[in-house]
């Protein structure tokens, strides 16, 4: 076997790793989007619990955000990967499956990333809701809007406007966190780079390319967020 050069690694030919790395990058994006979406769902409920929940609900939400922001993400990923597998195995045995069944790494990873980013998104949404002027909500009620209509037309868009900068930060964190999912064996970008590094003697090249792809993804998504932010703030007078 001949040693590939730097260009062979990124080429899309038969001997190149380009296609594999691109597939890995795609998987990274999928994990990040899934984790971010799950986190968004949890964050919405968490913020709602913290703002208008009773003492018990509020206490639960408070405990959730404190714990998840105080322990390493890697530990949470291990919890979901091994713990999820234990649950799946138990369920499998109920239905007569033999031996150990493992939870797919993608699901475990997306859930773990979702739970951790959910804690961050809870705080982002809560802060954003606090920034919405109470007069606007009162005006909506005065116009006779029902709860759901008020939420859809007034509360959600306004909260989102104030939440977007914070959500952008959370997205960047999620994107970087998705690299940790590689420990579950999901072939995302970093895992693919590890495979490449292991089967050639050019680990630096592979990890360097992976780093550059991460950089590209975060830069492009940062630009998209900027445009979105501007779109959601159309109604705001500047300067």
């Amino acid at each position: 076997m001949t040693e590939p050069g730097f260009l062979d690694i990124i080429s899309f030919g038969a001997d190149g790793w380009g296609a594999a790395l691109a597939a890995g990058a795609w998987m990274t994006i999928l994990i990040a989007i899934a984790g971010f979406a799950i986190g968004g769902l949890i964050g919405t409920f968490g913020a709602w619990a913290k703002i208008s929940g009773g003492p018990v609900v509020r206490g639960c939400a408070e405990a959730y955000t404190t714990i998840l922001r105080g322990i390493p993400d890697l530990l949470v990923i291990y919890l979901f990967y091994f713990g999820g597998s234990a649950v799946v195995t138990a369920v499998g045995q109920l239905f007569g499956a033999e031996g150990f069944v493992s939870l797919p790494g993608f699901i475990a990873g997306a859930l773990a990333v979702g739970i951790t980013s959910g804690a961050q998104q809870t705080e982002v949404y809560r802060g954003a809701f606090r920034a919405v002027h109470p007069g606007e909500l009162e005006a909506a009620t005065a116009c006779g809007m029902g709860r759901l209509l008020k939420f859809r037309r007034i509360t959600a868009p306004l909260t989102l406007r104030y939440a977007l900068p914070g959500l952008g930060n959370v997205w960047q964190v999620v994107l970087k966190e998705s690299a940790l999912v590689s420990v579950t064996g999901v072939v995302e970008l970093l895992r693919q780079a590890q495979i490449g590094a292991g089967s050639t003697s050019r680990p630096f090249d592979f990890f360097f390319i992976a780093a550059m792809i991460y950089l590209a993804i975060s830069t492009v998504s940062g630009l998209i967020l900027q445009v979105t932010e501007r779109r959601f703030s159309r109604g705001v007078r500047r300067g």
């Binding site: 994107l175 970087k176 966190e177 998705s178 690299a179 940790l180 590689s182 970093l190 780079a193 590890q194 590094a197 003697s201 050019r202 680990p203 630096f204 090249d205 990890f207 360097f208 992976a210 780093a211 991460y214 950089l215 975060s218 830069t219």
Partner: peptide
């Protein structure tokens, strides 16, 4: 700052631990 904040820490660890030995 751009490089180190834009890439995952794990990639940086791998670059140093596994990567540097390439040279």
């Amino acid at each position: 700052v751009f490089l180190f904040r834009g890439t995952p820490l794990l990639v940086q660890i791998f670059l140093i631990y596994y990567g540097l030995s390439q040279f």
